[in-house]
Simulated scan of single mutants.
Amino acid sequence: MPSFDIVSEVDLSEVDNAVQNVMREIKTRYDFKGSKSTVEVADGGIKIFADDDLKLKQMHELIRGHLQKRGIEPGQLDYQKVDPAAGASVRQTVAVKEGIDRDMARKIVKEIKGSKMKVQVAIQGEELRVTGKKRDDLQAAIQFVKDLSLEQPVQFKNFRD
């Protein structure tokens, strides 16, 4: 029986490459001259250290832009609370979301079942397995999930006939 998986994955090596590009750009930009602002990948997330709130916002834009160039959507990022550091400097952790959490999985399953498509959806850990009798039904399910306005981007893998 044909099937496919709905997953939410991030290539962490691409995140690392994007962060390195951001650091390279920070070193060459005039508005960051003399700044101690840094960005690094740690613990499956991104740690930002900026001189002030303005530089933090500029770094957010740089990170978003470089990640989008590398195929990572902004919805994969979860910005944590901004913590004050020494002086006027601030630090922030940005978690990179991977996997579909239970609430979002239940929402997707409910929407697909409510659409009366001839497919079955099963939650398997942090991914969803969608099975159906016809390939056309699965392609319709993929398009239906793409049209849902989900807060976290999803990918479709392991399409099998």
Rank of each mutant, 00 (worst) to 15 (best):
G44T: 01
Q58F: 07
G44D: 10
M104R: 13
I63W: 01
K69N: 15
L56Y: 03
L56P: 10
A18G: 07
M117C: 02
E25T: 11
D43V: 00
E25M: 10
I6T: 02
E127N: 11
L62I: 03
M104C: 03
M23S: 14
V39M: 08
V82S: 07
R135M: 06
E111F: 08
S8D: 06
T28H: 06
K57N: 10
K118D: 10
A141W: 02
H66I: 01
E9S: 10
R106F: 06
R70F: 02
N21A: 15
G71Y: 06
D31R: 10
T38Y: 06
Q80K: 12
H66E: 14
V90F: 00
R29I: 08
Q92C: 05
L67M: 08
V121T: 02
N21R: 15
A105S: 07
I26L: 10
G87S: 12
A122R: 12
Q155M: 09
A42K: 13
D53V: 11
E25V: 09
K36H: 12
D137P: 00
A18N: 04
D147L: 11
Q120V: 12
A95P: 01
K33L: 13
E127M: 07
Q139F: 09
A140Q: 12
L128W: 06
V154M: 07
V130G: 01
R91I: 11
E127K: 14
A88F: 11
A95R: 08
K27N: 13
D161P: 06
V109Y: 08
D103F: 01
I48Q: 05
Q139D: 04
E25S: 13
Q20I: 11
A50S: 09
M117S: 02
P74W: 08
Q120F: 09
D161K: 13
E9N: 15
E126H: 06
L148A: 12
I46M: 05
A122Y: 03
R129C: 02
A88M: 12
Y30F: 15
F144M: 14
V19F: 10
L138F: 10
G99S: 01
R70S: 10
V15L: 03
E127D: 09
V130R: 05
Q20G: 15
V22R: 01
V7Q: 01
F49C: 02
V90T: 10
T38S: 10
D53W: 12
L67C: 03
L128S: 03
G99L: 04
Y30A: 14
L56F: 06
I123K: 03
G114M: 08
N21M: 12
I112C: 02
V121F: 05
